[in-house]
Every structure is written in structure tokens, then in C-alpha cells.
Design a binder for these strands. Structure first.
Lengths: 158, 158
DNA sequence: CCTATAACCGACCGCTTCAGTAGGATTTAG
DNA sequence: CTAAATCCTACTGAAGCGGTCGGTTATAGG
């Protein structure tokens, strides 16, 4: 498996938040219920999302979480990276702040690391897929939620 | 990390075999030495490659491993899959024999799984990168090996 | 003020995988 | 016969995964 359920659950959580009109915060427990996921585990995941600046929280009664910016401006590479950590195909594969790709085995004399070409291509494929997908797309793809905000019900004739 | 060192080591091993003219088998110990990898660990990896039909072995003294087919005909998706197992972005994500993509959460009523769109794209990006790369490309990219078969030394003027 | 509801935080736990080691059995060239 | 090699199984320490638990803080409503 390329990713763990942290990415799966976390993305589902983000979609759930993205469904909400905007101003009203959504409680984790309601997300846990509608997605049938353990609340206490979601707490860990949402903490990562918050630290990454993707969601904001309001504490106390009637509190909950909201998207930090509109769903159209949230690309999934940021979301997945917040949840899973740096996305690289291989341990020896860091991309530096300035966008370069490094491989720890580069010092093997002058010859290039045999696998670098392959991992670079894989890296490219993944990041392209992730950064080319916005949260808004997923929200629309998922359709209306379990909760009852059924305006313009998708799937039925207008 | 998307992949473990099993893929890294295994690919390096394949490249090492791909460097050889063809008929003479390469012993694992020589691969282990030139790639500076633990021999006994390579044994596990090469077993997977052999079971996947990517390499053939000859036992006994002067034995070793050879590619089962020319490097141009070996695509890296087969190699990585042999080493890492089924390549899917997410646990709930199987591709059936007939090429379809399945998601375990499909039964959540009639609405599609929110994350399916995302994982499908990631899957596509990865498999495209892997299946679009042949072992021959990597062998050429890596340049001449540590062993002394220096005909047409790359990097020096002809 | 009290209480219910919520976000926060850290410790813990069983399980699986990873990376590697160890020891042996079998095959084969010289 | 012996050295070199593949082959096979079992084991191990460390880390991550998926999840639980208990407790602290903050806040809206009565």
C-alpha cells in the first residue's frame, strides 16, 4: 500500500468539512458518526491537519472544525503530506526546499544512482496526481452527505 | 515513503544483472559486494524476483542469476510489484483481473466513495511511471558498473 | 455558577512489517 | 572431495499502524 488509512480517513474528514456551507463549525463526533470512524483516532489526524494550517478549530460547546480556506484552493498534495509526512518514493529520496531532488547514494563515485531515474518518474506521477486534484473536486464527486442538506439532489432529474 | 528498501535493493540487483552481457550468470555475492548490500537479505529479494519469473538461477559453483528475458522487455511495474506486492494507493483499493478498480466502501449506499477519484488518479500516475520505464533504460542511465568491463567508457571522450 | 459539549494532549497497546541475521540443506564445477 | 553457490526456514529488534483511554481546558446555554 502506498498510503495508510491516515490519508484515507483524513481526506474523508476534509471532504466532510468541505461539504459544509462555510461558517458553521463541524464537530468531530458528527464526522466520526457519518463516516463511521473512531472519534479518538480522528482527533490525532485532525491535529495534523490543524498544524498544517488546513483547518481551523473553535473550542467549547458548539465548537468544531472548519476549512482554513475555500475547498477550491486546497490541493490534495498538501492534505496527504500533512497526514502521511513527506511524500517520497524512497527513503534516500529527499526533495530540498529549492525544489531539487536528492538521492543519498549520489556519492557513489561519479556514476548516478541507478534507481534515481525510476523514482523521479514515480515521484512526478504521484505529485502531479495529488497537486492536480482539489478538495472541491472530491466534495463534488462525493455528492450530498448523509446529513439532510438536500438542496439540488444529485442523481435525480432537475 | 511510498516504497521500502526492498524495491530499492531489488531494482539495484536487477540493474546489476542487466549490465551483464547475457549468458554468464552473476553470483549474488558479487552483486552484494558491488552494491554494498547484505548478501543474506538479497537472497530474500531475489527469491521473489525468481518466483515472479523475472530472473532465472543456476545452482552450484559458478552459478548465479540471469535475467529471464532481455532488459528491454522488462518493465519496472513487474519488478516493483514482485518485490513490494500489489501496488495500490490504499488498502480498500484492489484492481481486479479484468482491469477494473474496486473500492471496498462502494456499498455506502448509492453515493461513490469520496476518495476514489483521488486514489484512482494516484494509481494511474504511479503505474504509468512504472510501466513506462524499462530495465534497459535504468541500465543505460546507471552507466558502466564497478566491475571492469570498460568497453566504450561513458563519460570520457571517444 | 453548573453542566454538557467540545477541542486538546500524551501515554499506552497489540499487531504487522521491515531490515537483517543465522543456520542449515542442496546442487554443481573442478 | 571440496569450495562455491543457490535455496529454505526460523528468528529478532525496531518502527509504524490503528486504535484506546484518561484527563485537561475552553465555552455556550440554562
Amino acid at each position: 500500500m502506498l498510503f495508510s488509512t491516515k490519508a484515507e480517513y483524513g481526506v474523508r474528514l476534509m471532504v466532510e468539512l468541505g461539504r459544509e456551507p462555510g461558517s458553521t463549525p463541524v464537530s468531530l463526533s458528527s464526522v466520526a458518526e457519518s463516516e463511521r470512524l473512531p472519534l479518538s483516532y480522528l482527533e490525532h489526524l485532525v491535529a495534523k491537519l490543524r498544524k498544517a494550517g488546513l483547518v481551523t478549530s473553535t473550542r467549547g460547546a458548539h465548537g468544531g472544525y472548519r476549512l482554513a480556506k475555500p475547498a477550491e484552493e486546497i490541493t490534495m498534495d498538501a492534505v496527504v503530506e500533512a497526514l502521511e509526512g513527506q511524500i517520497a518514493p524512497m527513503e534516500c529520496f529527499h526533495d530540498t526546499p529549492d525544489g531539487k531532488v536528492l538521492c543519498s547514494h549520489e556519492d557513489d563515485g561519479d556514476r548516478a544512482c541507478a534507481t534515481k531515474l525510476l523514482w523521479t518518474r514515480v515521484q512526478g506521477g504521484v505529485t502531479k496526481a495529488l497537486s492536480g486534484t482539489t478538495l472541491a473536486e472530491l466534495v463534488e464527486f462525493a455528492g450530498p452527505g448523509v446529513r439532510g442538506e438536500r438542496q439540488t439532489p444529485v442523481g435525480t432529474a432537475a
